[in-house]
Amino acid sequence: MSAYYSVLKLRLLNGMQYRAAALAGVATQFFWGFMYIMIFEAFYEYSPYTPPISLKELITYIWLQQSFLAFVMLWFRDNELFTLITSGNIAYELCRPCEIYGFWYAKLLAGRLSSALLRSFPILIVAFFLPEPYSMTLPPNVVTGILFLLALLLGLLLLVAISMYIYISVFYTMSPIGSTLMIGVLGEFFAGLIIPIPFMPDWLQSIAYMLPFRLTADFPFRVYSGHIPQNEALNGILVQLVWLVGLVWLGRIALNKALRRVVVQGG
């Protein structure tokens, strides 16, 4: 646990050195947020039907997405790990007295947490005080808030578990390009980051609901605004848990298998 804490601290320290980068990140996210809101505003203005999600809920969705980008983006990657695998230096990693899956998982998690800590709070705070109609709302009640935090956290853990598969695949492809691309592009789409899931046509929605990606972003964001009612949210959290356990379990097996391959080949 203390090793994990120092990894996180190191990352934070590192991140703070790049104050301009953090500021730039915040500014970019705001711009993006405003842009999406305006586009949807324009769509909503002359909409012939009642949209599946209210504009206020959508605005909250967008701000959550912008502030927790580090929690939900599959693109976010750790190049150190990639070079470790492709250069064959993985052998050193095998000498460490801890299990690699756990160690890498902690490393990836720390990377995302430190990045989010520096960027998400400024965005969230400002987003609450923006002039109408752009401001973000609080969750309707405390229970929903707690459910959101739970869902967000599980979503983050789930996302890291999914991203582990990108690194595992590099053992076989020896190039991060293909897998990052495929998992990244598809994952982003099915997580509801391009358009929220309710806007998709029904057939696509049913695909999205079968995949784990939407549980990392779309699900917690809609729990927050109450668009997903509390009892459904509880169900969703259970599904998140099942996916998490399954993916970690499978990922561990896959990684160990990949590592054995390295050992057999002699790195």
């Binding site: 203005e45 949209p51 691309l181 592009v185 982003e188 789409f189 358009i195 696509l204």
Partner: peptide, 26 residues
């Protein structure tokens, strides 16, 4: 190939939004 697909999902998103809303400010 990847560059071909990246804006593809963005375009797909655009398409689905129009499927639902029909127009954007005319």
């Amino acid at each position: 190939f990847g560059q071909f697909f990246i804006p593809f999902t963005v375009f797909a998103g655009l398409y689905f939004l129009f499927e639902r809303f029909g127009q954007i400010k005319g």
